[in-house]
Design a protein around this nucleic acid. Sequence first.
DNA 1: ATTAGCATCCTTTTT
DNA 2: GGATGCTAAT
Length: 789
Amino acid sequence: MPPADETAPANASGLAARALAASAARRPYLEGLNAEQREAVETLDGPVLVLSGAGTGKTRVLTTRIAHIIATARAYPSQILAVTFTNKAAREMKLRVGLLLGEVAEGMPWLGTFHSIATKMLRRHAELVGLRPDFTILDTDDQIRLLKQVIAAENLDEKRWPARHFAHLIDSWKNRGLAPDKVPPGEGMAFGNGKGVKLYGAYQERLATLNAADFGDLLLHVITIFRAHPDVLGLYHERFRFILVDEYQDTNVAQYLWLRLVAQGRRNVCCVGDDDQSIYGWRGAEVDNILRFEHDFPGAKVIRLEQNYRSTGHILGAASALIAHNQGRLGKTLRTDAEDGAMVTVTGAWDSQEEARLIGDEIEALQSKGHALSEMAVLVRISAQMREFEDRFVNLGLPYRVIGGPRFYERMEIRDALAYFRIVTQPADDLAFERIINTPKRGLAEATLSLLHNHARSARVPLLRAAEALAQSEELKPKPRVSLRDLLIAISGWAERLENGTPHTEVAAQILEESGYTDMWKADRSAEAAGRLDNLKELVRSMEEFPDMRAFLEHVALVMEASDGEDEDRVSIMTLHGAKGLEFETVFLPGWEDGLFPNQRALDENGRAGLEEERRLAYVGITRSRRNAKIYFATNRRLHGLWQSTVPSRFIDELPQAHVEVAEGEAGYGAPRHAPSRFDNLPAFAASTYATPGWQRAQARQRMAEEASARGTGMRGRGAAGGFQNRIIEGEVVASSIAQGAGFIMGERVFHQKFGPGVVAAIEGNKLTVDFDKAGRKMVLDSFMQKAG
DNA sequence: ATTAGCATCCTTTTT
DNA sequence: GGATGCTAAT
């Protein structure tokens, strides 16, 4: 369908006249922009690359540019293509453009994520790649289940060739714009006894039969269409007078190819990005796209935004010096007019628990001084670090919010419910049918399913149709036959109700009730069951915003998010990746230890490029803060269930002395007291907490083990602390030895990190039986107990 | 058909 | 440590 749903301004001279008239008018939205920003906003014609450092007003430039285009009547909102990576960014941009123009602009139909815009295009031309316009979008889970079938169909051992691995491989091909026939022969050999490419092709065929596309297809199919049908591409050249791209450093090859095809029309393309904030290399982002820009769009104007409006001097100084250790940068020099403010602090902790304790205390201290919790964030390298902070904050009663947990639509109960909705609206959706056929349990498992599969394959019909035929025949035993028939009757009943206009939310609720799905969770005694039922209610409630079931499912596939109270005052806990684009007054950066951050695996797999990406991550972390950045490391951390002693991150050594200070720990917490350049000397604690006999014994044990390993394997690692690297201390040993001389007595009030306050009920060696006020009676190691005042 | 118990694997995350 | 996924037992 050609994109001709609105009339373009009648002709060029009409446009020019209006532009002239408008340019004479006042443009309040330009006020307050600095010279570089203003240039980035006003350079409308031809390709523009904006290199925008952290906190330099990138979003402001983008939104103002859009407002400028519209206000000067250079194009209608519907003639502007604006692409972001996340729905959140798209929403924010929409909102801010609206604010700038004061409600004048009706929604911009082509402002969205790469994927949502590609989907919109693909639905219009689906038949050109063998899909129907109402194709289903599969998520990763569906994708993997489908791949399992494809792999099994080739008689390959699923264990040797895991579907998950293959899914990554296919994604990486799709991210590079490679259809099955374009994959370099060598690469396909690596999987499935050399059948990689064949399997990829089989998978694509299955997708077509299912009338489905995975996330990678959305872009890839559109690229295929654009290449094979210049007339279709021409429609979009005609339409899009201006193109804007956010976070350009994160584009992968497919996105780049797509963009280049669309932008080669009028060449009014403006990309905004920061090579120093490229942190998605591992999922196919190509920083080189920034360098290629000038090559592909000759005569491109490059504008640097270097005035930082976010952070104080010390924070900017520390971050800039750190990132300067990277080679292969385009290079920017950020400057600020802000005061120096507080230095970046570095604090050492004995272990990760103490680290969490220190941060918790500091947050409470700030809070009591009147700082908002919503202005503080804990930014971790890996999600596994989050639990420790959650535990600690629960104990302190600090409200917190974890950002980037499992997404709402990825939860089991939501996916199950959606599968029901899908099969009702999309009879060909075999994956949905398979998901719900025996959920809740109706005695339709493997045996029945394989019978269905055989039928479906030989008759070349979807599973649902095969099931209908089978339910009439004698092939099934009476029991499964009856329950299959009941299910089919129910499904067609629901479909009918949707057809004849029963509100979709009502039908949805009925589906969940009548299928027995909610009953299944009501009968479940496990702790999460109640939450799952809530989620289901929330799901049905959220459907109200959509006109019908189909629109709802479309939305869900691409955008669905949990809506937890964003406006409450809470500390945020999130990964460094999740923090990109956000800012806080105070940022806590725990876990700066070699191996964790920079992450060992990034180093192993990608060498120096990996290290540089980790360093950019560190840079992103520090530059999230407006006033305070607080870095932490622990000398002992439990990884994969084992205690390991760790070495402070090399990034700490790279921080400039002029902007960084070593924090004095709270009394008794044993913060190291030495110069920042001497972090390698750890562990060298002399603080009182660790001067207990038990701890000294543990140290002696460490030394013995160390000497033993030195004799056995020779010295390794670096410097004086080298011997401590990679050494494993069993949790029990450390814990019980610290406990020596703890001297608890019966009836004593005690406190436990996890269970809270309680009373000692019995003592057995180093094990205490404690009646906790909240958690009841528990047996715990005394080393985990503290005496309560 | 269901489930308990055992082995295995551990970044980062969007769509 | 803990989630996940498979085997083996009921």
